[in-house]
Design a protein around this nucleic acid. Structure first.
Lengths: 203, 203
DNA sequence: TTCCGAAAATGGTCTGACCACTAATCGAAT
DNA sequence: ATTCGATTAGTGGTCAGACCATTTTCGGAA
């Protein structure tokens, strides 16, 4: 009671919505009740409902389609990220910091995988990515292999930020090389090579 | 024009606000124009202004004080983070992942600092933190020393998430020990000790 | 049955109102 | 003149209702 009373409506709404999602076991892609329904059921004005929804929409957690409805979304940062980045990165002026964090996250991932004897490095042997963005696909795969979804999310987000600052100078060749080193279990050289990829870009 | 036309009003508002912040060189703690002012200046309804503001408020980037105004936030993630966490972490069920990321981030920070010959480890010699949360204060200091503000932000955010899941079992003594090892330049032992702190907590 | 247009449902936006809280202002008592 | 209190103006918090644009649905016409 004491807690809720000072809580803003839109925050309480957010709580309720989350609860609803859990109870109904909604999954990515599922549709949420309409704003008007939520308004009735949660006893809040539509404006408040919308404030709540816009907040999570900006985060890329839901997706709204005009005339259709509001849907849970498989978290894809690349959407409103630009907007966010300009806010979040107010003080993080230099893209150096951004690249450094991206590098460190990737390094952590590589280190952890390389340290795991169980890890199947051979799967990368004959792997070729269709897309024209090998870098992203490769690390997406690596992070998924590592299995920590949160780390993957953070990396994804940071990578998204980087894109807004520095539109991909797609040197795919370099990452082919990294892929090759990994599949040959040349771990130390892979790490060195990975590091060298970033040394050039930083100040 | 083509871009803006499909952009939602609240997103455009967000853009304008960011621009305003840059032009006016507003810093943390500074006050933004009132919702009504923004409404006039940006040619949008107050509702749309609010949708934009609520979104960044949820992120902890601004702070609104009833009767006073809206302020750029002096960097404290711990606010609405709980709300966010329940959404963001929908799939990240286990607190293990959370703790692991926190651990990895801290480890990265330690590694980087230890590798830097210039780093003044002696500053931690006679350091004692007033607060009752040595863990946070210590790493806050370490991350600041490292100098990558983005990494600090991420760590802070993750730490905030951890708190919502696992209200601090404040074993300050342990971090006193870590502090001691660092100030004595027992880097390897510090790293081991730091790792041991997390081994207990994971499944 | 197929196809098309009207109707319903939904998100997008705006207006205006009222409440609650805060801080500045003004005025009276000292 | 100073102090303290009440008034007032400014601000965020919330709501109700309206209208538009888009999508889906559904029933009637071919």
């Amino acid at each position: 009671m004491t807690n809720q009373s000072k809580m803003k409506v839109y925050q309480e709404v957010l709580n309720q919505i989350r609860q609803f999602i859990e109870e109904q076991e909604l999954k990515d892609g599922d549709r949420l009740p309409s704003e008007r329904e939520l308004s009735e059921q949660l006893n809040a004005s539509r404006a408040s409902i919308r404030e709540a929804l816009r907040a999570v929409e900006l985060l890329g957690l839901i997706e709204t389609r005009h005339g259709e409805g509001t849907f849970l979304r498989t978290y894809k940062p690349y959407h409103s990220v630009e907007l966010l980045s300009t806010f979040v990165l107010r003080e993080v002026k230099t893209k150096d910091e951004l690249l450094e964090v991206k590098f460190l996250l990737e390094q952590v991932c590589l280190n952890q995988l390389f340290a795991d004897d169980q890890w199947d490095y051979l799967q990368f042997k004959d792997l070729s990515f269709n897309s024209n963005d090998i870098q992203t696909d490769l690390f997406l795969r690596l992070f998924e292999d590592y299995g920590n979804r949160l780390l993957l999310k953070i990396w994804h987000l940071v990578t998204g930020f980087v894109e807004t600052v520095d539109p991909k100078e797609g040197s795919n060749v370099r990452y082919e090389e990294l892929l090759k080193l990994i599949s040959q279990r040349q771990y130390n050289q892979a790490l060195d090579y990975h590091a060298s990829l970033y040394e050039n870009q930083c100040s």
